[in-house]
Nucleic acid binder design. Structure first.
Length: 367
DNA sequence: GGCTCCCGCCACTGT
DNA sequence: ACAGTGGCGGGAGCC
């Protein structure tokens, strides 16, 4: 029966970054969470610290978290995603005014915030080996070189790929090829693709992207869903995350289990998964056992406990739902470009639905 | 058998 | 010096 006669205690899926991300999100996406300690996260999620860095880096890249200090992140929440995406888009568009034709797309330039802690105009750019053109001349230095390969940057560039172009399905090796064009060196490519898998898994767990395959070939690929998804042709099966209800905290959330190869009869760390309810065009659904439906989402094996709150008629807290229009006008940047306006209102739309879920629980600060 | 991608070594970086 | 970060790629699950 069993192939290797081992008591297979180890399941790779249970250890996936995507799942960890879901758990992370459900753990911290709740009332009164403002600051997140990495040690605490690692402890409560039952993983080693190294893994926390992985997800934290990509979460930060899409605005959900912000680094506050050593070992400390602050929770920005899903409400921060729209602005982060918008920002990435602006950057991508600006830094890369020449639209790309899919063939030779130079690396999208880096860095989000205007943190000019690199005082000085830099003079030494001993940095070769990059095909990028950096408008931010403060490149160079080993630090920059290292940053250039960081998960965070790769995440941002990956996202820019989508938000700055009409592309919405791309395979990872295409992406790897585009991002930082070292298409030749296969070793570098492999590493990069590995990283993209990592990134894709956490973005998937947030439903910013989903897995599919390219139209022509059967090659696996990822489709951009964004905040509400824009289907190219009609079908609008768009998923957006929304706040998880309170999780019962009785049982501790821990993922401690077996090592890869070692037998370990410790707790069967069956982590209660994030009980996200997904929304499709305003109707919330539980994807419990959508096994044979379209596809099961990235929730891993022991997915969504039925948490329900399906009858969304209960907590429609009329109080404290803001006037969206005024909010919108408050935060609306002044675009002259119609396309950007459209995009913004699109984001706004998605953001509203998020916010209405969150309303009454936790104010979103948009700084 | 190739696609995925977890694991953890160890180089960096910040203090 | 030390602790916090996080590139990196070997190699094992999974399909």
């Amino acid at each position: 029966m069993e192939s290797s006669s081992r008591h297979h205690a180890y399941s790779r899926k249970q250890k996936s970054l995507g799942l960890l991300c879901s758990n992370f999100l459900s753990l911290y996406n709740r009332d009164g969470i403002n600051s997140i300690g990495l040690d605490d996260a690692a402890l409560r999620l039952g993983v080693e610290r190294r893994r926390i860095y992985d997800i934290v880096n990509v979460l930060e890249s899409v605005g959900v978290l912000a680094r506050k200090a050593k070992n400390q992140y602050s929770w920005k929440g899903f409400g921060a995603i729209p602005r982060a995406l918008q920002k990435l888009q602006e950057e991508g568009l600006r830094d890369n005014c020449n639209s790309f034709d899919g063939n030779d797309f130079t690396k999208i330039s880096d860095d989000e915030d205007d943190d000019e802690r690199f005082s000085g105009p830099n003079g030494s750019q001993n940095d070769k080996s990059n095909t990028s053109f950096n408008i931010k001349s403060s490149a160079s230095s080993r630090t920059e070189n290292r940053r250039e390969k960081s998960l965070a940057l790769l995440t941002q560039n990956f996202v820019k790929l989508f938000v700055c172009s009409s592309v919405d399905v791309i395979s990872l090796d295409e992406a790897a090829k585009l991002l930082l064009g070292d298409a030749h060196n296969s070793s570098i490519m492999r590493t990069k693709v590995r990283r993209l898998y990592d990134i894709a898994n956490v973005l998937s767990s947030m439903n910013l992207i989903e897995k599919t395959h390219t139209a022509d070939s059967r090659k696996p690929a990822f489709r951009w869903l964004g905040l509400g998804g824009r289907a190219k042709d009609g079908s609008t099966h768009n998923l957006i995350i929304n706040e998880s209800r309170k999780r019962s905290f009785g049982t501790d959330v821990t993922n401690i289990s077996f090592k890869r190869n070692k037998v370990d009869s410790s707790t069967n760390g069956q982590m209660k998964n994030a009980s996200f309810a997904h929304e499709i065009d305003g109707h919330s659904i539980l994807e419990q056992d959508s096994k044979d439906g379209l596809k099961s989402y990235q929730f891993g094996p022991f997915a969504p406990v039925t948490v329900a709150r399906v009858g969304n008629t209960e907590n429609n807290n009329p109080k404290r739902v803001h006037d969206w229009e005024s909010l919108a006008s408050t935060y609306r940047p002044h675009y002259q470009n119609q396309a950007l306006k459209d995009l913004f209102s699109h984001y706004m739309e998605a953001w509203k639905s998020w916010y209405s879920e969150v309303a009454g629980k936790k104010p979103i600060q948009i700084s």
